[in-house]
């Protein structure tokens, strides 16, 4: 993909920017807490864009007052899965909304191999395209 020469995964907010520092993450967490959103930490080693449901790292934090608690959880997730993608989500529990309002990556593997284009020949001269993450050629937990 020529627009993303470093093959960095671009999902969620801030993903075209350099990685957020802890201070910047704290500011984002504070914003979520100010709005009364619950913070969750999720991780995965399958970066396919259609892989929507990442594994949850611990329970979502519904009753935090301060960002330091969430940052502690993020750091402990980084320690446990240093070579996986970790993202932070904010969940708006308001009745009728009940959906994530923020999502940004806070940890990525040191080396991201990126995606390849897969062409599938189907009926006639038709071709179907899909993308395939090189990382997922290896079994789970050995990918990065």
């Amino acid at each position: 993909m020529m627009t993303n020469t470093n093959q960095r995964l671009t999902q969620g907010q801030f993903s075209f920017l350099p990685d957020l520092t802890d201070t910047q993450i704290t500011a984002q967490l504070d914003y979520a807490l100010k709005n009364g959103w619950a913070i969750g930490v999720e991780y995965t080693d399958d970066p396919h864009p259609r892989n929507t449901y990442w594994e949850m790292f611990g329970n979502p934090m519904f009753d935090l007052k301060d960002a330091a608690g969430a940052l502690m959880e993020i750091n402990s997730a980084r320690k446990t899965f240093p070579n996986q993608y970790i993202r932070v989500t904010a969940f708006d529990a308001t009745r009728g909304v009940e959906s994530p309002t923020m999502s940004y990556i806070v940890n990525r593997p040191a080396k991201e191999p990126g995606f390849g284009l897969v062409r599938q020949e189907v009926d006639g001269r038709a071709i179907r395209y899909t993308i395939h993450s090189y990382a997922t050629d290896k079994p789970e937990s050995e990918r990065y």
């Binding site: 611990g58 329970n59 934090m61 009753d63 935090l64 007052k65 301060d66 960002a67 330091a68 608690g69 969430a70 502690m72 959880e73």
Partner: peptide, 14 residues
């Protein structure tokens, strides 16, 4: 451990 950490996270900033 998770129970204690949960409480500590809630108490952060206070």
């Amino acid at each position: 451990a998770p129970k204690t950490k949960e409480v500590l996270k809630r108490a952060m900033g206070g």
